[in-house]
Simulated assay, not measured.
Amino acid sequence: MSNQSLANTANHVVAQYSAAGKTLNQAYRATVERVLGDAKTRFASVLEARSIPMVNEQIKSELVNAQELLAGYMLKGVQAAYDRADQAIDAISTRAASGIESVENAVARVESSIKLANFDAVRTLNAPIASLATKIADKVAEGAKAVEARMAVAAEEMAEVAVDAKPARRAVRKA
């Protein structure tokens, strides 16, 4: 295994972990957005379905509007946080790739100036480890995609199953 193929393997591993991080980030983002949307809908339907003393239709409408405004602020905050997480993943991936390239260039310079047989021995020893690292990174990326798919399926199932809340019962005290 040459120096170039070890660098390619390292870059592949970085790319797979980056892709896995972004996939999980997107899955969690979509889930949080869905939960906030469901909360908005449920709040409005519960408020409209119940008769609350001293709360008329105008107050109910204002409560729904206030809740939608609050959910909008929360959603903007969530989106900003996940955007920053994506940017962090990109920055880490870029820095790692740059570091791999720097090491590759340094090894190439040393190898071209000094002909040592030890470099070939080190590469031969690292070949199985590099192969294993590639396989692990591929499995992590596949796992992240599977988690994203499961979260999407679970969210669809939650949307299909509408559970009506029963009114709370008060315990009757015996005198």
Rank of each mutant, 00 (worst) to 15 (best):
S2C: 04
N3F: 05
Q4S: 05
L6Q: 12
L6T: 09
N8C: 03
T9W: 04
A10F: 08
A10M: 13
H12C: 01
V14C: 02
A15M: 04
A15D: 15
Q16R: 06
Y17T: 11
Y17E: 11
S18I: 03
A19V: 06
A20Y: 02
G21C: 06
T23N: 06
T23C: 05
Y28I: 06
R29Y: 05
A30M: 04
T31C: 00
E33H: 10
E33R: 04
R34I: 00
V35F: 01
V35P: 01
L36N: 13
D38F: 02
A39M: 13
K40P: 12
T41N: 11
F43L: 10
S45W: 00
L47R: 03
E48L: 09
R50Q: 12
R50K: 09
S51D: 14
I52T: 08
I59F: 15
K60M: 03
S61G: 11
L63S: 06
L63F: 10
L69H: 13
L69M: 07
L69K: 15
L70K: 09
G72V: 02
G72H: 02
G72M: 00
Y73K: 12
M74L: 11
M74R: 07
G77M: 07
V78P: 01
V78H: 00
A81Y: 12
D83Y: 04
A85K: 06
A85E: 07
Q87E: 15
I89E: 07
I92M: 08
S93V: 07
R95T: 12
R95G: 15
A96N: 11
A96V: 07
I100M: 08
V103W: 02
V103Q: 07
A106I: 02
V110A: 05
S113G: 11
I114T: 10
I114L: 04
L116W: 05
D120H: 08
D120Y: 05
A121R: 13
L125I: 10
A127K: 10
A130G: 15
A133K: 00
A133F: 06
T134G: 14
T134Q: 11
K139D: 13
V140E: 11
E142D: 15
E142Q: 14
G143L: 05
K145W: 01
A146F: 06
E148N: 11
R150C: 05
M151K: 03
A152S: 11
V153E: 13
A154S: 15
E156H: 13
M158Q: 14
A162Y: 05
D164K: 15
A165T: 07
K166A: 10
A171T: 11
A171G: 07
A175Y: 07
